[in-house]
Design a protein around this nucleic acid. Structure first.
Lengths: 249, 249
DNA sequence: CGCGCGTTTGACATGACTCAAATGCTGTGG
DNA sequence: CCACAGCATTTGAGTCATGTCAAACGCGCG
């Protein structure tokens, strides 16, 4: 019984800390990756005021849905994310995965409504930026606008490269490229570049890369059989990074 | 002899007018599509000062090349354009086509160098915007920054949709979607939505859509045989727009 | 423990690619 | 102004990478 209440307490404490994540931008660990970069302290405080840190979401929960009115930009605080677009007849394309410090929904900021749907891949928390207020703030903070421009431009550059992957690469090249991409993103966030968690399902990966689940599965086992990588359910280890690089096409 | 000199004069005149296309942003016919949108007169004059209208290029000439240092944003004034990215082993992907009023090179503006190559599809003229100066101007013109943000966001939205095309559509759906896309862009520019010129080669189209030239050719003839479209070498007529729409997937 | 979903594996089907050749178009030099 | 060279496009035949369908497996959750 005492055991139960101990756990209870722990859980409550965790939930409380979760809810209370009112860490100022200034103190946020994502500082370096996020919007604050290049802003002065005073400006940061202004930014702070419009950020809503309330957002916690469960697996498969959606932050926003295509065609719903656009109002807010989201920045991932913890956990990971996917966005999807659909054809009129219901086929779906995963247009991106998003990790802490990354912006979701940038492609909508000139439109009246979201054009993609954002779904949580795990339990996540986000910072919500009401875009209207960001714009108002931007009127007097060119630095903020610049940061946004940089963010957009980076995503655009990534997507252009992704077009190369979708249009011209074989299934093996696609997966190899994708793994290296993830590796770099995790490394940038201070995590291991050689061992990480695939928070998305095989079918999400397959869909994103324009392949069938079965193909992804086969390529994974092929890569594993050749001892280039190791997989234990969700955890990937990149053993021979050079060989992987060579396979990227 | 008099004939020759007549033509001579005509050519010289043309060349002169070409060179002299120092039409102020304010008076430019692309006004509505381009950066000036939403700027005040005074601001426009400032923008005017940093725009270089010198650029005329021949077919296949490149404006910028991947890995070359990034310095300038280009806006197409007349003619059309493609950008490409390549894999390390030389395969190439056409990442976009650009028409009057559209920005080329936006994906590079956070980087030290261009990541794609921009090539003229016909004789073209462009406005060149030294990005450094755009930034300086942006410091005091939030409206300008906003316009840039909108431009970037639009391109991003387009590319996300394009990922859907590349990843999930059949060859017929790809071409149908592409034709409709072109149609809309021409319409927006005041041209016919149902009859227009394909300034790019079949192999450029094929490459862009992630298909082989032969496939494009076959689909074109199939569409034509079914009397949905008509093709006379470079000119396309969309006869049954509704049917085309239905084929977009 | 067992249900259900996600993943893997196998066998087969097919859309799009490749290779090859014919046809058509464009621009250039005689 | 014509003829020819060279490139772009079309058409045909055969192949192949990847998709589809089906079934087994296994892991996590209730």
């Amino acid at each position: 019984m005492s055991q139960t209440s101990d756990i209870q307490l722990l859980i409550e404490d965790l939930a409380k800390r979760e809810q209370e994540q009112q860490i100022a931008c200034e103190d946020c660990s994502l500082h370096r990756l996020c919007l604050p970069l290049g802003l002065h302290r005073d400006d940061l405080l202004l930014l702070d005021k419009i950020v809503k840190r309330s957002g916690n979401y469960q697996v498969k929960q959606s932050l926003f849905t295509a065609a719903e009115p656009f109002s807010t930009l989201y920045v991932v605080r913890s956990g990971s994310f996917k966005t999807t677009i659909s054809t009129s007849n219901g086929r779906e394309q995963v247009t991106g995965f998003y990790f802490p410090g990354e912006f979701v929904g940038l492609e909508a900021l000139h439109m009246p409504s979201y054009q993609s749907t954002g779904v949580a891949l795990e339990t996540i928390s986000v910072c919500a930026l009401p875009y209207q207020k960001v714009q108002e703030l931007g009127e007097n903070l060119p630095r903020l606008q610049s940061q946004l421009l940089t963010r957009l431009s980076k995503e655009l550059a990534g997507d252009k490269n992704f077009m190369l992957l979708l249009g011209k690469k074989t299934s093996e090249e696609k997966l190899a490229t994708y793994l290296r991409l993830l590796s770099k993103r995790f490394e940038l966030r201070g995590f291991s570049a050689t061992e990480f968690d695939l928070t998305m399902s095989r079918s999400d990966i397959a869909n994103h890369l324009g392949l069938a689940v079965e193909t992804i599965s086969r390529v994974f086992t092929k890569f594993q059989d050749s001892r280039m990588i190791k997989i234990e359910s969700k955890v990937v280890s990149l053993i021979e990074m050079e060989r992987l690089k060579g396979l990227c096409g």
